Computed example of a mutant assay.
Amino acid sequence: MHKIFKIVAAVLSLIGIISLVRIISAGDEAIKTGGEDGLFEPMAWIGYITLGITIAFVLVFVLKNLFTNTSGLKNTLIGVGAFVAVLVISYAVSGSDLPIEYKNGDTIATPNESTMVGAGIVAFYILLAVAAIAMIGSGVKKVISK
């Protein structure tokens, strides 16, 4: 299995290097025009394939580890539940800016989109505060234990 992964990585790397050489040799003008002759497509596909393979392996190994380690499954479910709770609280707290119209080009944001953006910002602040408190608490605990 390890040999197969090394071969796939080598092939993807080789195609990526060839694509990079083609882009560099095309010159600045071809790059500025956006590579209309399919210059960037192979490099983009390599990125998509690599991302897909990486996500697939991460999911497979995480799920395998979760089901073989039941104590880890409990802790993971607690963490996922806490994250979902933060998202639900963030959505409940944030309201839509109904009278204000947010424009992105010709598109106007709906009240639901405004609420979702607000919920994302509130969730970010909550998670930032939790991370800061955890880091400070860890540092204080380390200083006290010395």
Results as ranks from 00 to 15, higher is better:
47 G>W: 04
55 I>Y: 09
67 F>V: 15
59 L>P: 00
48 Y>Q: 12
135 M>L: 14
66 L>W: 04
30 A>M: 10
36 E>Q: 13
71 S>D: 13
74 K>N: 02
59 L>V: 13
59 L>F: 07
36 E>D: 06
23 I>D: 08
125 Y>A: 14
126 I>W: 04
73 L>H: 00
131 A>Q: 05
64 K>T: 10
64 K>Q: 10
134 A>H: 09
80 V>H: 00
112 N>A: 15
127 L>A: 05
128 L>C: 07
28 D>E: 12
129 A>H: 02
70 T>N: 01
106 D>A: 15
113 E>P: 00
37 D>L: 07
46 I>V: 15
100 I>W: 07
55 I>L: 14
68 T>K: 10
37 D>C: 01
21 V>Y: 10
131 A>S: 10
113 E>V: 10
119 A>L: 09
52 G>A: 05
80 V>I: 15
129 A>G: 02
40 F>Q: 03
119 A>C: 07
102 Y>D: 05
140 V>L: 14
48 Y>E: 09
71 S>E: 14
83 F>N: 03
17 I>T: 13
107 T>K: 13
134 A>I: 07
124 F>Y: 13
43 M>L: 15
51 L>W: 12
59 L>N: 05
52 G>N: 05
61 F>S: 05
60 V>G: 00
43 M>C: 03
95 G>E: 14
102 Y>E: 06
74 K>D: 02
15 I>K: 01
55 I>S: 11
70 T>R: 11
138 S>R: 10
139 G>I: 03
143 V>C: 00
143 V>N: 01
51 L>R: 06
100 I>K: 02
58 V>K: 01
99 P>Q: 02
73 L>K: 06
43 M>Q: 09
20 L>V: 12
141 K>P: 00
97 D>S: 13
121 I>S: 10
108 I>T: 15
77 L>T: 03
56 A>R: 01
66 L>V: 14
48 Y>L: 11
61 F>Y: 12
58 V>E: 04
15 I>A: 06
58 V>F: 13
54 T>Q: 11
111 P>R: 06
111 P>A: 11
32 K>R: 14
52 G>I: 03
137 G>M: 07
108 I>N: 03
38 G>M: 08
91 Y>R: 11
54 T>N: 13
16 G>W: 05
42 P>W: 05
99 P>S: 06
26 A>K: 04
113 E>T: 08
130 V>D: 10
49 I>Y: 08
123 A>N: 07
140 V>K: 04
24 I>A: 12
137 G>R: 01
28 D>F: 14
84 V>P: 01
65 N>Y: 05
86 V>L: 03
116 M>E: 13
93 V>Y: 15
119 A>V: 08
52 G>E: 11
110 T>N: 07
52 G>H: 08
113 E>M: 08
105 G>C: 08
74 K>A: 02
144 I>W: 07
118 G>Y: 06
100 I>E: 09
80 V>N: 00
77 L>M: 07
79 G>L: 04
101 E>N: 13
100 I>V: 13
132 A>I: 15
18 I>E: 02
28 D>H: 02
66 L>T: 10
75 N>K: 09
15 I>W: 03
126 I>G: 02
85 A>Y: 04
139 G>Q: 04
135 M>F: 11
128 L>G: 01
17 I>G: 01
